[in-house]
Simulated assay, not measured.
Amino acid sequence: MSCLARHRRAALLGILSLAVAAGAVAARVEVSDELARLAEIHGFDVTGLTETVGGWGRTDDGHLGDQLRTLLADYDYVIVAAPDGGVRRVIILGERAAWVPPPAPESSTDRGEAGIALPTTRQGSQRAVVAELEGAGGQRLEQMLLVDTGADFLVLPRSLLPSLGIDAQDLRDQEVQTANGRVTAKIGRLPGLWLDRERLADVEAAFIDDGKLGGHALLGMNVLGRYRMTIDDERSELRLFDR
């Protein structure tokens, strides 16, 4: 074999080796099957698994979080962290559609596909955003809210009732679900909740004794469920899109 032929053969073998290695790192799999497999191995729950049926994704051998991000690259999803830093739940919101952000809207009622962008901050293993609570007299109260897909309602400390002009005697008692379990709350309604410049009118809220919340307020699914939601860790941003 000539010297040139040997070089060509070595180059070809090198290319094939790289292709095999790449295939091992990023194998193509059915998303629903792989997600169910990871959930069984690592002990987390999956909501919305049917959204991935028929979809194909890729896997890698990295940390669980990296595996999930690679596998779900074509989907909108939320990963709920466990207290120990692992994964408690994965929520599939739907297939991600490519879009180009439109020009900045002139008003809060004309956001189009740009959605609502809220800066996030870390609160332990969770993300928090700042919103404004609109009270009975139209006054606004700025409040930090933990993004909590395990909470049924917008959950607020009971101590806020006087500041919001709400009488506790006008509220009803109800058991509600939070990430820390079920608790008894006073259920009422806020005239409005402001997320950036967008106002949500007549928002139901659960008021819970401050000691049971540990000083935190929660942005729950009665608000988050109105939107498709993405969390951008690199930009520290929560983005909400109309369904």
Rank of each mutant, 00 (worst) to 15 (best):
L12T: 08
L13C: 14
G14A: 14
G14C: 09
S17T: 04
L18R: 01
L18M: 05
A19P: 08
V20H: 03
G23N: 05
G23Q: 13
A27P: 09
V29F: 03
E30T: 09
V31Q: 00
V31Y: 03
D33N: 13
D33E: 15
E34S: 12
R37T: 07
L38S: 01
L38C: 01
A39G: 01
E40D: 13
I41W: 12
I41S: 09
H42Y: 11
G43F: 02
G43Y: 04
F44W: 14
F44M: 00
D45F: 06
V46S: 08
V46M: 06
T47E: 05
L49F: 07
L49D: 04
L49P: 06
E51N: 08
T52F: 05
T52H: 09
V53M: 09
V53W: 08
V53Q: 12
G55L: 08
G55C: 15
W56Y: 13
R58K: 05
T59M: 10
T59R: 11
T59L: 06
D60F: 11
D60E: 13
D60C: 07
D60M: 15
D61N: 08
H63Q: 06
H63T: 06
G65T: 00
G65Q: 11
D66R: 15
D66H: 11
D66L: 14
Q67N: 10
R69A: 07
T70S: 04
T70L: 03
L71P: 09
L71I: 07
L71S: 04
L72H: 04
A73M: 08
D74Y: 07
D74R: 12
D74M: 12
Y75Q: 00
D76L: 07
V78L: 14
V78M: 02
I79F: 06
V80N: 05
V80P: 12
V80T: 14
P83I: 05
G85A: 11
G86I: 00
G86A: 06
V87W: 00
R88Y: 11
R88N: 09
R89M: 15
R89P: 09
V90N: 02
I91C: 04
I91P: 05
L93C: 00
L93V: 02
G94V: 03
R96D: 04
R96G: 03
R96H: 02
R96P: 01
W99I: 12
W99N: 10
